[in-house]
């Protein structure tokens, strides 16, 4: 099938487009470090991590006992960002909530990518009928909105941070698997893979030694998006009230509390978590987006739309190879 539109990463990864020699090798550490957009994203992430994990070492506040004398105080001396409906200091809550948001994000980003990488690489290497079956499983998982599955599963189990990490990872790997498998299909036809086959390398050797390292670029992109998506998903779960029970808080919990008090005019409860949540999601998407641009050959054009193909790619296999 001829590729008809942009040689974007996804389409190339779908297997139909020759990579024209640039391949994933364009994705080097140097390219990452010299890109303005990745570095601005990394800067925001580092700043937020410092804020959440190092901040509590310097800024102490009571987050244990409810103090009814202090509820819903506007920003002022002693409470730079005011207090919430329980009398907790919002700045300190923001650090605490950010810890769980970021921990979850990194864990799901990495775990989901590793699962998807293994699945996709195996599927691409074995090829043929087994590949077709494995890919239809991925398609089936992608056909159902993640949020629905998340709600069904979370109504069956009692949640804590660990369980949510597991569920989100299990739900986020199919998109990764699809991309990695597409990449492996293109790599398989490249000279070095054929040379390895000719020299009698086993499929497992080729998989571990040649395929997995070469899909590293894609994995960086998908894990960056994975982090953003899972932080976002956790905030939606918290909003719907099916996240982990109360002592647990993430930025979504804070934002939901703030939104519920929005009509009382307590604006200081809404804007801080809103800004941090949008910043962190934005920063990770920026990193993933810029990395994807580098990987697809310095193409201009941002990924928003292309990442939709990536994230919610269901059964569109227009660019599939015949092999």
């Amino acid at each position: 099938m001829a590729a008809t539109s942009a040689t974007s990463l996804e389409e190339a990864a779908e297997g139909g487009v020759a990579q024209g020699g640039r391949g994933p090798s364009g994705l080097t550490l140097r390219a990452f470090l010299r890109n303005r957009r990745t570095m601005s994203g990394v800067g925001i992430v580092v700043a937020l991590c410092l804020f959440c994990f190092a901040g509590p070492l310097f800024y102490h506040a009571n987050l244990v006992s409810v103090n009814l004398n202090l509820i819903n105080e506007p920003p002022g001396p002693g409470h730079p960002l005011g207090t919430d409906e329980f009398g907790f200091d919002i700045l300190a809550r923001l650090m605490q909530g950010g810890q769980s948001s970021l921990e979850l994000g990194f864990a799901v980003g990495i775990l989901g990518t590793v699962l998807g990488l293994l699945y996709g690489a195996i599927s691409g290497v074995i090829g043929g009928f087994g590949d077709a079956i494995l890919m239809r499983i991925v398609d089936s998982l992608l056909a159902v909105p993640t949020l629905l599955l998340l709600i069904i599963v979370s109504s069956m189990f009692s949640l804590n941070l660990f369980v949510i990490i597991v569920i989100l990872s299990v739900l986020s790997w199919p998109a990764v698997a699809r991309l990695v498998r597409g990449q492996v299909l293109t790599l398989r036809t490249r000279e070095f893979a054929q040379a390895a086959t000719a020299m009698g390398a086993s499929k497992r050797w080729i998989l571990i030694k040649h395929m997995v390292p070469n899909t590293f670029g894609i994995c960086v992109v998908t894990s960056a998006f994975g982090v953003a998506d899972s932080i976002y998903a956790l905030s939606v779960l918290s909003f719907l009230g099916i996240g982990p029970p109360p002592p647990f808080a993430d930025w979504g919990t804070l934002l939901t509390n703030g939104v519920n008090n929005l009509f009382n005019g307590y604006w200081w409860q809404v804007y801080p978590p809103m800004i941090t949540l949008i910043l962190v999601v934005l920063a990770f998407r920026q990193i993933g987006d810029a990395m994807n641009d580098i990987a697809s050959g310095g193409q201009t054009g941002r990924i928003y739309a292309r990442r939709r193909r990536l994230g919610f790619l269901s059964v569109g296999t227009r660019f599939e190879t015949q092999g």
Binding site: S5, L142, P145, G311, G316, R318
Partner: peptide, 19 residues
């Protein structure tokens, strides 16, 4: 190409619709 996007963005629209 927007046609393809239309077909593919359905699950995300549904998820948004739920909220």
């Amino acid at each position: 190409p927007v046609i393809t996007i239309l077909g593919l963005s359905f699950p995300s629209i549904v998820a948004g619709a739920l909220i």
